[in-house]
Nucleic acid binder design. Sequence first.
DNA 1: CTGTTAGCGCCTTCAA
DNA 2: TTGAAGGCGCTAACAG
Lengths: 339, 339
Amino acid sequence: MASLKDIAKRAELSINTVSRALRGSGYVSEDARGKVMRIAAELGYRPNRAARSLRFSKNYEIAVISFIGENRSSGDQLMMEKFVGIKRRLSASGYEMHLHFLDIDNACEPANLKLLEDISGQNPAGIIIIGDGELYESIYRLMEAKQTPAVLISYDVIPEMDCVYIDRLQGVQDAVHYLAEKGRRKIAFAGFSGICCNRIRGYRKAIKELKLQEIIFRERSYLGSDLERIFDLAVAMSKNIAGTKIRPDAVIAYSDYLAAGLVAGFRECGVKVPEEIAVIGFDNRELAAFTSPGLTTIAQPNFKAGELAAEMLLNKIIKSSEQANAVGVTMNLKIRSST
Amino acid sequence: MASLKDIAKRAELSINTVSRALRGSGYVSEDARGKVMRIAAELGYRPNRAARSLRFSKNYEIAVISFIGENRSSGDQLMMEKFVGIKRRLSASGYEMHLHFLDIDNACEPANLKLLEDISGQNPAGIIIIGDGELYESIYRLMEAKQTPAVLISYDVIPEMDCVYIDRLQGVQDAVHYLAEKGRRKIAFAGFSGICCNRIRGYRKAIKELKLQEIIFRERSYLGSDLERIFDLAVAMSKNIAGTKIRPDAVIAYSDYLAAGLVAGFRECGVKVPEEIAVIGFDNRELAAFTSPGLTTIAQPNFKAGELAAEMLLNKIIKSSEQANAVGVTMNLKIRSST
DNA sequence: CTGTTAGCGCCTTCAA
DNA sequence: TTGAAGGCGCTAACAG
């Protein structure tokens, strides 16, 4: 790897002059500058990251921490899109992205604690934490306590923390309005107990605005990563819904997984989707394109969320702002044939 | 961040002694060692990566390059599992993973060329290239030419290159044998023209071994990322298959996407899965758990492939071996209800 | 057993 | 306009 020294030797100039020429700072004669530029290009000069980091006792690495393990968990597909968004924005400003995977199933295990130590031990310029809940907030506090600027990607405003949140409330709210415009009047929400607060809030808000009747179906929550199990739960739920005295004419499901199971279940018991009941999913996962009928779903703008989080973090690194920001990104309805 | 200097000051020793104590190399009195260790722990000392990199003019970063863009492409879900495998193995040896995304739709665009320059400009200790085909092989050659050890994760042995390959041939071969054991005799393969060579080879091999009749359905290849389009193609294909004079009693599909469409299509035209026709998919994507019936599929051991690739690369970095290695990882049948 | 010296590549400060 | 010196944190070689 060519260094300033190599260029200096060839150009018969001091290292320093070369450095100044390359950075375009300070006085350099046109002559010298031209020579330096030419030789640098010839040699394919690239500044040495390690040296720069050392010199400024700061590095250009942004840690990104996300909850995903080796066993396929529900996060991966959506996570990846966030990574790509983050990466793009960081690259544009000369920062690197360092990915870290937190084993969510064993959040308090030594391995995870070690992970956090590793991360802060590397002294990243900043950290982006992807996830919602106490665990992630505690990581945020931990990093900030060590002077490492942090940003959360979450699903709701987190008081006193910088975050980009994907606005699930608005997403569900829009979905309800969309269904109402399509003439649906008995719009239900199907979810799990305890884990879909902001979705439910959006649902309630819209139902109230429209002066409709609230219809909520809840299954005992299942948080594992066994997809077949979720499917079976959903199919069972569809029988419940189909058998209700006043059957809803639309259901917004907690997730695409659940929605896919509902669609399959309704088919099994002869309830026509979308004619008799419309189904809307959540997240726009791949599988939403493979149900029949195709699943209308509330899509996460993951790429954008990633970009915004990176943007916010870079700002925070440059000028440490005083007060916490929360930026919402809106979810968009991806319309297919289930509505 | 505490440095050796800080520890030295507190311990009233020279920086060097501290360094030796911490690394456990060279002579240090028990007394000194104890003191150093204690203070280091107190201060939460972590060696500075940048300084180490600079000192050894070598870094501990492994670049990982994968074909994925901001628009959801078919790779993400499987890719993520590979990343996790790579990451785990590298962490265990003190290496970092640096992810890079190659925009496959614009392989020759300046942005991609810049990406390659960036990567080699950072002088990674090694590189893992995930992908199959000329593009990836050229990246391999490029990096090796710059003395950067490279390893490919591919789907076949690549002559004269180090690679971990996911053995699609074996995967399909096993699937055919499995179907035969279940009593199926008219086993077909459904794919796209030109892009499923090693799968087809596996199919042919097994069919020959079993002395069965080869039945291949091919659609004009569609390589885009529009999932609805793939689904429609697959549904159309299922009508073809269902309408054949001698209808097969089993189909192995090129992908889970295709298989999911086939299952839906067969249902539409009243052909019972698995009773009248068994369907096997490829990759074990999430959606395979959400078809009805659930899709039996040939699963990629992505995590393992990632781990092995990292392992191979680390070996290559330490002792640059003379001759190219190819390690195959076997695919496993994930059995659900479609067979 | 311990300390000193030098240098990895870069940049800032100061002197020429 | 240019060059020399010093130091970021670390380690290897050498001297005490």
